[in-house]
């Protein structure tokens, strides 16, 4: 039995709609792939920014800095303050939670490079599900007030995201 004219026309219209829908769906899939890659880029950008923020905070706080009559010395950490701050955060939960607001999910440590080889773990919070680690290394001077002496050290900030 030959199809009637109306049936043919209906078939054509339906085919046109199907083709348009396929094109739209393809467009949406392409768009969502692009958006997802944008979101991933944004996540990386935010993680990098957070790592720098934490490192920047750690290098600037008066709790660790060398001061001389109240004036801070750039890139200089007081070794006694470093040791005390490390033990404060490990022994006082309130203090740990207070500074966790700034340091977030990170590991902050100081490693002496020359002439000694002392190291201090200042802060660690890796409770989140770790997907990536962004380390930031900052060379610093370590000041020993009792000997009035300096050594070279590295502040290592690893931001977990």
């Amino acid at each position: 039995m030959k199809p009637r004219n109306a049936q043919i026309q209906l078939g054509e219209s339906t085919a046109a709609i199907v083709v348009i829908i396929i094109l739209i769906v393809l467009g949406l899939v392409f768009y969502s792939v692009l958006s997802r890659s944008n979101v991933d880029d944004k996540k990386i950008e935010i993680a990098n920014l957070e790592a720098i923020e934490v490192a920047s905070f750690a290098t600037a706080i008066p709790e660790l800095h060398c001061t001389f009559l109240g004036a801070a010395s750039a890139n200089c950490f007081d070794a006694v303050k470093v040791a005390n701050f490390s033990s404060l955060l490990s022994s006082d939960t309130d203090a740990y939670l207070y500074y966790a607001e700034f340091f977030k999910n990170a590991r902050i440590s100081i490693e002496e490079v020359y002439p000694g080889n002392a190291s201090w773990l200042i802060y660690e919070n890796n409770k989140s599900v770790r997907q990536s680690e962004l380390p930031v290394y900052i060379p610093i001077n370590l000041y020993y007030p009792l000997d009035d002496d300096y050594s070279f050290a590295v502040l290592k900030v690893v931001k977990y995201s």
Partner: peptide, 18 residues
């Protein structure tokens, strides 16, 4: 003053250690 409490604690601990 919450932050000052921690800063003072660290200054006190540092002075004791010295």
């Amino acid at each position: 003053f919450t932050r000052a409490k921690y800063v003072n604690t660290l200054h006190a601990d540092r002075a004791i250690a010295i």
